[in-house]
C-alpha cells in the first residue's frame, strides 16, 4: 500500500502543480528518491539532503530556492530530501512553508546506512549534500557542505543544455 501511495505521489509531482496537492514532505526510501530523479522529465535535477537542525543546510536553503525560481523555466527541478528525526517532521514542514516550497519534498525512510549507500555509495553521510543530475539521469556533480548561490548557478549552468 505504501508503495502504491508513493507511486501516486510521485505521479503528482511529475504531472501537476504540486502546490495543489498540499503534500510537502513525503516519506521515501533512497530508491524512491532515485526513481523521482530518473522520472523528473527535467533538463537538470538538483538533489539536496538537508535537515532543520543542520545549520549550513538551513543557511543555503534560500539560495537553492532562489536558483530554482531563476532556472525552473529552463527545466531545473529541485528534490529536497529531509533527514530530520521523526519527531522533527513538523518542524521540517514549517520550515518548508517559510521558504515558499510549493512542490513535493521527501523525508528519509529506512536506516542511515542503506539510505546513504543507495543514494550514492561515494557519499559519506555528511550534510548538507547536493547532487546535480542531467536530463538523462546521469550524476554530473556532487559535493558536501554549503554552496553559495554563485556556486550553485555555476554547477547548474554547466549541466543545462545550451
Amino acid at each position: 500500500m505504501k508503495r502504491k501511495c508513493f507511486v501516486f505521489l510521485a505521479f503528482l509531482f511529475l504531472s501537476c502543480d504540486a502546490s495543489q496537492t498540499d503534500l510537502q514532505l513525503i516519506p521515501a526510501t533512497a530508491a524512491e528518491v532515485l526513481d523521482v530523479i530518473k522520472n523528473a522529465n527535467a533538463n537538470v535535477v538538483l538533489v539536496n539532503v538537508w535537515a532543520t537542525w543542520c545549520v549550513p543546510c538551513v543557511e543555503e536553503f534560500p539560495d537553492i530556492m532562489a536558483v530554482y525560481q531563476q532556472y525552473k523555466s529552463r527545466g531545473l527541478r529541485v528534490v529536497f530530501v529531509s533527514v530530520d528525526f521523526e519527531d522533527q517532521a513538523d518542524d521540517a514542514r514549517a520550515f518548508l512553508k517559510t521558504q515558499g516550497v510549493d512542490f513535493p519534498t521527501y523525508l528519509k525512510l529506512s536506516d542511515d546506512r542503506a539510505f546513504i549507500n543507495t543514494l550514492d555509495p561515494n557519499w559519506s553521510g555528511a550534510m548538507p549534500a547536493t547532487w546535480i543530475y542531467d536530463g538523462e539521469g546521469e550524476k554530473r556533480h556532487f559535493w558536501i557542505g554549503k554552496a553559495s548561490r554563485e556556486q550553485l548557478e555555476k554547477k547548474i549552468r554547466d549541466v543545462l543544455p545550451h
Binding site: P56, V83, I116, G125, A126, M127
Partner: peptide
C-alpha cells in the same frame, strides 16, 4: 566500514 548521517565538518 559503515556509514551514518552527520554534520559536515566546519
Amino acid at each position: 566500514e559503515t556509514k551514518a548521517l552527520g554534520c559536515s565538518i566546519k
